[in-house]
């Protein structure tokens, strides 16, 4: 894969410069847009690999932009916003964003999120040739057909709910899934509540992670949801 192209949508020049400088240090290509309309246009014409989207644009609401984009592209969208309310993040994620970053953010944090998104792009590109029957991520291996999970070649025994949660996260690796979305996907509407989800995620993490106190795979976003991280094998 060539140098990835990042579309930076940000109306504040100082923050846009900071992001641009950061991207330059990592040898990423970038393209800048300052309005929602410009972002939609550039997203269609430049075909960026990842989009960094500020939610508070002068002309459009960021959540609307995400919805419009999700009509035709699955490109990772990382939301960058000064809105720190959990509800805003959840709304953006439910609209189809992959990840979020709250201002003020650190440069390291931004780069880490970008790497996660790019890994997903790369993995999606590789996978599109063959329909995945097996999921591999670091030491984790899921055989969807057999319904089995291994870590380092050793089978892990999961309850049906844990298995469904793991599959859901694995199929959306790199994307932050909200509590609401996960509960709906695994239990169906009105099936369970987020506290139950939290308990199952805790037990799943204990079985899956080599060191549950420092999780490598299952990342918790307090007040928001969970994410499966892709590990370089």
């Amino acid at each position: 894969m060539n140098k990835p192209l990042i579309l930076v949508v940000e109306d504040d020049t100082a923050v846009a410069n900071l992001i641009a400088t950061t991207l330059e240090t990592q040898d990423y290509h970038y393209h800048r847009a300052t309005t929602g309309a410009g972002a939609l246009l550039d997203a269609a014409s430049c075909r960026p690999d990842v989009m960094l989207l500020d939610l508070g644009l002068p002309d459009m609401d960021g959540v609307d932009i995400i919805r419009k984009l999700r009509g035709w592209t699955g490109m990772p969208i990382i939301v960058v916003s000064a809105r720190s309310e959990d509800a805003d993040k959840v709304a953006a994620l439910d609209a189809g964003a992959d990840d979020y970053l709250t201002k003020p953010f650190s440069v390291d944090e931004l780069l880490a999120r970008l790497r996660v998104a790019l890994r997903r792009v790369r993995y999606d590109a590789a996978r599109s040739s063959e329909e995945a029957r097996v999921y591999e991520n670091g030491a984790i291996r899921i055989d969807y057909e057999a319904g089995c999970v291994w870590r380092n070649g050793e089978e892990i025994h999961l309850t049906p709910i844990e298995y469904r949660l793991l599959c859901l996260l694995a199929k959306n690796t790199g994307k932050v899934l909200t509590h609401h979305y996960m509960v709906e996907q695994v239990w169906g509407a009105g099936g369970a509540d987020t506290p139950a989800l939290r308990v199952f995620m805790a037990t799943l993490r204990r079985k899956l992670e080599p060191d549950p106190a420092h999780p490598q795979y299952l990342q918790t976003h307090v007040g928001i949801g969970y994410r499966m991280l892709r590990q370089s094998s």
């Binding site: 509800a87 939290r198 805790a202 918790t220 307090v222 007040g223």
Partner: peptide, 14 residues
């Protein structure tokens, strides 16, 4: 307050 049952473990890590 957006009160929800939360795992203390998650909160500590955060």
């Amino acid at each position: 307050l957006n009160r929800q049952p939360e795992l203390l473990d998650d909160i500590f890590q955060e």
